[in-house]
């Protein structure tokens, strides 16, 4: 009767030992083990309201590794990357050049469905984590930037992609924090991502990726709703949802201001 659980735990220990030994030569999905590593995450909030005095915010993401190997954890073979992706939209990059002495937008390239904002945090440099895994679109340097329409010159593509990344990083809408994910205990981690002051509203996606020795093991995602509140947002909503009424109000304010001033100053 007692033998069965003992045997089971022995088998488990053996499996883990085998796993640890072959970790460097791990085949991605062929592990002959019952214990595949997993990942669970939770965020400090699922909704962020942006009031008029919003100066940016921090989002904390907690997560736990399940079925992680203690030994591999100890020697830092697990890596976690957390991203926060804003709503997707087209983006156009334009380049100026001199035409008859004047600077004119002469070339442009439109990228399809790129996130309006993008923050990434990781346990270390993304390039070190992704070393063995080519083509994963994680991080500002690797994210998918596919141009719409025909691109004549492939050299241009790199140039425009680089310009796009540089401008977005400089504007604060894209940011990365390598080292922003920290293990707080052997299997619990904590990441904090920064939402810039000009973060777009809409549904953002928190994504967490678990890597073991450069191989992607698990992926989790959670939505984060960013709602702008306050008078500014009401004005923006009105301008987009009831543009005619909004225009009429603008004109009425102008008429009343002009007329009011002439009344007030005439009395004096």
């Amino acid at each position: 009767m007692l033998l069965k659980p003992i045997l089971r735990s022995l088998a488990f220990a053996a499996a883990i030992a085998f796993f640890a030994q072959t970790a460097e030569a791990q085949v991605p999905f062929g592990a002959a083990t019952t214990a595949k590593e997993g990942l669970e995450i939770g965020t400090s909030t699922s909704e962020i309201g942006i009031a008029s005095d919003f100066r940016g915010a921090d989002l904390t993401i907690f997560g736990a590794l399940t079925n992680a190997d203690e030994l591999l954890l100890a020697i830092g073979q697990y890596d976690v990357v957390v991203t926060l992706e804003g709503p997707l939209d087209y983006a156009t990059v334009r380049k100026k050049s001199r035409v008859l002495g004047i600077w004119v937008n002469t070339e442009s390239m439109t990228f399809e469905q790129v996130p309006a904002s993008y923050s990434v945090a990781a346990t270390r440099q993304i390039d070190d984590i992704l070393s063995s895994e080519g083509g994963l679109p994680i991080g500002t340097d690797h994210m998918r930037l596919s141009p719409t329409g025909y691109v004549g010159n492939a050299g241009n593509l790199t140039e425009f992609r680089d310009a796009y990344r540089r401008l977005k990083l400089a504007g604060g809408l894209y940011q990365h924090d390598f080292g922003g994910v920290r293990f707080v205990s052997s299997s619990l981690f904590r990441a904090s991502l920064r939402l810039p002051a000009n973060v777009p509203d809409g549904v953002h996606m928190v994504r967490a990726y678990l890597f073991k020795s450069g191989t992607l093991l698990a992926e989790r995602e959670l939505p984060l709703r960013v709602n702008k509140t306050g008078i500014e947002q009401q004005i923006t909503d009105a301008a987009h949802n009831q543009p005619i009424l909004y225009g009429i109000v603008c004109v009425m304010i102008a008429l009343m201001t002009g007329w009011g001033a002439s009344l007030i100053f005439r009395k004096k």
Partner: peptide, 26 residues
């Protein structure tokens, strides 16, 4: 023009306009 700009380009800033107008008429 204000109304058509508001309806087609969503580009009339009511806050900016109000501040400018009040200061302007004075």
């Amino acid at each position: 023009t204000t109304m058509v700009q508001a309806a087609t380009n969503y580009s009339v800033d009511i806050v900016l306009a109000t501040i400018l107008m009040v200061a302007g008429v004075i």
